[in-house]
Design a protein around this nucleic acid. Sequence first.
DNA 1: TTGGGCAAAATTGTCGACAATCTTGTTTCA
DNA 2: TGAAACAAGATTGTCGACAATTTTGCCCAA
Lengths: 234, 234
Amino acid sequence: MLKAVDRSGSSAPQIDEQAIVERITAAVMEQRLPHGTKLTETALCEIFGVGRMRVRRALLLLANQDIVELRSNRGAFIARPGQGEARDVFEARHAIEPDIVRLAVARAGKQDIAGLEEHIRLENAARAEPTRRDAIRLSGEFHVRLAETTGNRVLTRLVRELVARTSLIIGLFGGAGPSSCPEDEHAKILAAIKAKDAAQAIERIHDHLTHIEAGLDLTGSGQAQVDIRTILAE
Amino acid sequence: MLKAVDRSGSSAPQIDEQAIVERITAAVMEQRLPHGTKLTETALCEIFGVGRMRVRRALLLLANQDIVELRSNRGAFIARPGQGEARDVFEARHAIEPDIVRLAVARAGKQDIAGLEEHIRLENAARAEPTRRDAIRLSGEFHVRLAETTGNRVLTRLVRELVARTSLIIGLFGGAGPSSCPEDEHAKILAAIKAKDAAQAIERIHDHLTHIEAGLDLTGSGQAQVDIRTILAE
DNA sequence: TTGGGCAAAATTGTCGACAATCTTGTTTCA
DNA sequence: TGAAACAAGATTGTCGACAATTTTGCCCAA
């Protein structure tokens, strides 16, 4: 029997395509991979220490989530959502997330609340750091954690995908806004959930999403090119 | 220059993986491909007249939508959602679709309304036919058409995926229920939209989804095996 | 007859090679 | 000098081959 051989020089023991998708998605959520960045197959092969087939499958999945764009015979690029798509994503979040907080009010236990409070503490700590990456990522992740408290895997996955696309949109249209999520709105949402006040929690998540969207200027910006090796290497 | 050669003997001129995904999804929505059905790669290659790579990529996309299940070294099978997943899917639809009808009330024009009315007529006609396939498919498609009237591609795609999974769930847990969607509920929803009564439309879509879910018995059923060649051949 | 064990066939997972296409750099001519 | 044409290199798309695993069919013994 021939066991799987670790072809990569790094610590990763075995990497499947889902792991590659997550790594790239995380980089997008931290806005380290700007829209338009070319994802060369051979580069990704070296970075993750896998064969080309795995990389191509991962890129297909990312394209299916509209996180990357596959151009025929040209390769894969981090997607560049248009204004219409930005509106659609926020509208979808307005449709889903209020129901999520409603379910969270009904289902979140003390442990869930405590976990979310800890998460907000991490967010605040990250906001103080010089580098913004953790702050940006944690800010998006809060919404995913919130969805997880519903115990609904389908809703959680929808939110995860929409949050990732939102990061892309903020990176593209977010101008010089202060941050992806205004200061203490997460805390206010969580407070309403903790108080079992569904109506207020729903109102606050609506306002929160509206504020994020209002922070965009919807002016097409230029594109950047970065070295994906520097960004994705762990 | 070497133009693409039509390798299939059938009429299909050129088939990409998205087309394969749609064909299989349609078969699932019409409940012609029951849960647990094995999708052999070589069989799909012959059916669609494409190489194995295309088939494998299509199966990966279908697995990503939880329509098929990929088991390592075993192959691809039409997914067999559990009770928990069934609950989650309906909960997600309860979260999304009320907002969709709200948007539909605000945005649907006369032409959209007319299209939906025509669709309902087709549904009623199909209900009278001996074969149920068209009725089942049209019944699910109504929800997709409704989503399309919002003009929101993100929401439309979410609904399309959830409807396909719902078909799978109905096929698995739907017992001997009369149909996937009770008689005239679609018409009532559309009437409320036409009357611009958002509150009533929302209430009716909630009730509609609840009725569909109530028609399930949530008792694990046996599995069937069918010949995919007979089903997917056009 | 029935169940376990074994070999053959079928199926999936992976890799390498090659063709087609795109990109880049250079040359050439107006 | 500048732009078009061309050639070299790089990248993507596709196919075939092979190994690993699973499934199937068969034989044999209890």
